[in-house]
Amino acid sequence: MANSRVIIVRKKDISSPKGIPDLNCLVRMFKRGFSLLNGPGDYKKNLQILFKADDQIGIKINTLGGKNLSTRPEVPQALTSLLIKSGIPSKNIITWDRTNRELTTAGYRLNMNKKSIKIFGTDSRGLGYEQDLTSHLNIGSRFSSIQSRIVTASISLAIVKDHGLAGVTAGMKNYFGAIHNPNKYHDSNCNPYIAELFSTDSIWKKHRISILDALLIQYHRGPAYHSQWAAEYGALIFSLDPVAADFASWQIIEELRFAKGLPSLKEEGREPLYLKTAEKMKLGKASPADINIIREEI
């Protein structure tokens, strides 16, 4: 079986001193990332393989960390511009997270206009969580109706952070924000819950790609923001393999920790065990020998 590809596209000094990334640079990074998804190619063609024109594309971002440590608004903005160029109607694109309050706190401007790109939370009027429970392995949860009913193709556009329990929070754990009771899945290093939630039909059958915002990485004492342990990394991470994308994020966090003289996550008893579980469940690859990491600087 072919190795999984992870594309890491970096741009030095992409963000202003206030932490605002340059939109044009982001667009270039996205183009580069998409063009390399399946080997050298054309970004538009690769997007057209991933998404049909009538797909309702859900871009699940992570805005738990407030203004300092959330998926930056410029990132989905750059992404949507390329989706539109590839033929997706703007009205078919939804950037979303749990609550409107978290979205606005992170700098997003809400928009529920049906004719344009939409930005809203699950708690918006008329949405909410499904009444029926999804019962799957150890998971018993009600899904956000955005994920279960509206979205047909899902992008996990998460931020990369150290996590006090899971070890790492990235593209897979991002979907904890798609259910009503994520607090129930933080036992035992969030394992096997992250992998089992990801394997539910509402996610597994809809997830198309993980794109991770690694512009600023919280490499220690996450998931809350601590400026002294946050590094400007200036990268976007792309992979069609959700497990490999998270694995690569973990490796970057370990590199940053090593450079700062911090113990590894394993030494702290927080190795992201969910990755091996996910691999066993055949959700993707979590072994270095099975993953090709392609690093690009622009």
């Binding site: 407030g66 006090g164 607090n183 129930k184 933080h186 004492r221 996450g222 998931p223 809350a224 601590h226």
Partner: peptide, 25 residues
């Protein structure tokens, strides 16, 4: 330190960073 807390109400002893909720929600 660093805005972290530990809940000692129940045997879960949830250790939480800023903006996090306990298991109870």
């Amino acid at each position: 330190p660093d805005r972290e807390i530990e809940c000692v109400l129940c045997p879960r002893f949830c250790k939480l960073g800023d903006k996090e909720r306990g298991y109870c929600g």
